[in-house]
């Protein structure tokens, strides 16, 4: 996702300054949420009854998340560096979404973030090896989930860790076979472009 949505008239310095401004804005949103100022703001503006009617009374962090996403898409359209904006926005919204939660929910949210990043990379990337890397990321996110459950839900017989061992085993086998398939396709077609792996189309 490199400067695809950005207009090409921007200079690198401009893009960098937009990105920096976005990082500062995200920092302010997260700190406003962490210190409770966002709650006060919601009360002041009169959003509280609306949130209550949607059964989202305790979900002020969703507001911070939506704010960060909207700011990020605006800055990306104005012409910031898209990859840095995505990373900063993800870290900021991860902070906003997990600061006041139980540790289990923090770990599950981190795993969800990594899983979504892996999904995005799997869909977007055109290199077959990078797709395999994204799959490894997703499997690791699942492992974090399992180990977090073993720690906070079932600490006596650590079944989550047992499942994680089997997941690691299958992941190792999957990586070996997947890379062997990529190698043998490369021998036959001399490319690793996912778009050109259409040997089996009807």
């Amino acid at each position: 996702m490199t400067s695809s949505t950005a207009t090409n008239t921007q200079t690198p310095a401009q893009a960098m300054s937009y990105t920096l401004a976005y990082a500062i804005a995200v920092f302010f949103v997260v700190s406003a949420y962490a210190t409770g100022n966002l709650d006060n703001f919601v009360q002041m503006v009169g959003l509280a009854p609306v949130l209550e009617s949607w059964a989202l009374k305790d979900y002020t962090e969703l507001l911070a998340f939506i704010l960060i996403v909207l700011l990020g898409s605006t800055v990306a359209l104005l012409g910031g560096t898209t990859s840095i904006i995505m990373a900063v926005g993800t870290v900021g919204s991860f902070f906003a979404l997990t600061l006041n939660q139980h540790p289990l929910i923090q770990y599950l949210t981190l795993a969800a973030v990594l899983f979504s990043i892996g999904l995005y990379g799997m869909v977007v990337s055109r290199n077959a090896v990078r797709v395999l890397m994204s799959i490894e990321l997703m499997l690791n996110a699942v492992n974090i989930n399992l180990v977090a459950f073993a720690r906070y839900v079932d600490p006596v017989q650590v079944k989550g860790q047992l499942f994680a061992i089997f997941v690691i085993t299958v992941a190792a086998a999957e990586a070996a076979v997947g890379l062997a398939i990529v190698l043998s396709i490369y021998r036959n077609t001399s490319t690793v472009d996912m778009e050109r792996f259409n040997l089996l189309k009807w």
Binding site: L108, A112, V113, S116, V123, Y152, V153, P155
Partner: peptide, 26 residues
């Protein structure tokens, strides 16, 4: 799709009705 997936997972793990165990790990 990725953001939608993340929001679905987050909203489904967010309610605090997990049967948590407070025992320390062995």
């Amino acid at each position: 799709v990725a953001v939608g997936l993340f929001m679905t997972i987050y909203l489904s793990v967010r309610p605090e009705n997990w049967t948590l165990s407070s025992e320390p790990l062995d």
